[in-house]
């Protein structure tokens, strides 16, 4: 931990980064989460999964939500997608209150959820067809999207014939083709191996740069959050509440070697403090029984 002692404050922003944030704040608010709360009826009374969440996301902003497992990240994004109902608060897209799912809020799930009976192109066409587009024009647009996410050669493959990364790229293309105002992503790269995940992150940023879309991205991976986000919403668990909203001081365009830059490390350290707070009660050591022979130590 010695190397991080001389890190800058994570709130310090270079002039370019500060200018970028000023510019973002001038853009219209696309998604507004207003005093949102969610309680679940449990066996022993109700459980508060989310309490008083407030967030305004501006056009073409990329916001990450991070927090420990079980803090309500999925619940939050499912409510935004309209797949779950908030017990209090409101949700506004482009200033209009919404409830229930709709094509203005596209979603990419951790489990891909591609339609297994449709090819890559047909999966991407699905949203367009739901909006009443003619088959031929939907197909040609879907093929462009397949090219855009680098799946040109796999247009006619079924999901079962794709690797995890390719499936997730299809899912991203499928969501974007429906032309949503907000793209919601719930730990989309969580099931991928480290190398593929890293590639997918760069790829997502490249797509985002070229497409007019606002992204709300859920993750529990600190590096992923810092690498992708303009702002990071940090949740705490029991009940799920906003701890802090961090403006990431790492300049764009992001490159993979920036993960060693001081701003990156400073932000990451701040996230680490928030998510893994120094506990007054260190966890009790496990009652480990020695199974190896004496003198066989690894430490």
């Amino acid at each position: 931990m010695n190397t991080t002692d001389h890190l800058p404050d994570y709130r310090e922003q270079s002039p370019e980064v500060a200018a970028r944030f000023a510019k973002i704040k001038e853009r219209p608010v696309v998604l507004e989460i207003d005093h949102l709360g969610r309680q679940f009826a449990g066996e022993h009374g109700s459980v508060t999964a989310l309490r008083d969440i407030n967030l305004k996301i501006h056009r073409r902003e990329l916001v990450c939500v991070i927090g420990p497992s079980g803090c309500g990240k999925s619940t939050l994004i499912r409510i935004v997608a309209g797949l779950d109902q908030a017990t209090s608060g409101r949700l506004l897209v482009d200033g209009k209150e919404v409830s229930g799912p709709g094509p203005d809020r596209g979603m990419v799930f951790q489990g891909y959820t591609l339609f297994p009976w449709l090819t890559v192109t047909q999966n991407i066409m699905f949203g367009l067809e739901m909006q009443g587009r003619a088959k031929t024009s939907a197909r040609s647009e879907a093929e462009q999207w397949a090219d855009l996410v680098g799946l040109g050669r796999f247009k006619d493959n079924y999901p079962a014939q794709l690797s995890g990364g390719m499936k997730q790229r299809t899912a991203i293309a499928r969501a974007l083709a429906a032309n949503p105002r907000v793209l919601l992503m719930d730990e989309p790269f969580g099931a991928l191996d480290a190398q593929t995940r890293c590639q997918m992150q760069s790829h997502l940023l490249e797509i985002w740069r070229n497409v007019d879309v606002t992204i709300l991205f859920i993750t529990h991976d600190l590096d992923e959050a810092v690498f992708l986000a303009d702002r990071i919403l940090v949740l705490k668990a029991n009940p799920g509440e906003v701890q802090e909203i961090i403006e990431v001081p790492v300049p764009r365009p992001r490159r993979i070697d920036q993960i060693h830059s001081p701003e990156f490390l400073a932000t990451r350290r701040r996230l680490d403090e928030l998510i893994h707070p120094k506990s007054e009660h260190p966890p009790e050591p496990l009652p480990i029984i020695r199974l190896t022979q004496a003198g066989d130590d690894v430490e």
């Binding site: 799930f109 959820t113 339609f115 009976w117 699905f126 949203g127 739901m130």
Partner: peptide, 28 residues
């Protein structure tokens, strides 16, 4: 898989389409 229905809903599918374009082909 209920996830397929949710995905279809976020793509704009309505009741009729959920039955005819998701449930039916998925279970065929």
């Amino acid at each position: 898989d209920g996830g397929l229905l949710e995905a279809a809903q976020t793509l704009g599918a309505r009741r009729r389409q959920l039955v005819l374009r998701v449930l039916l082909p998925a279970s065929l």
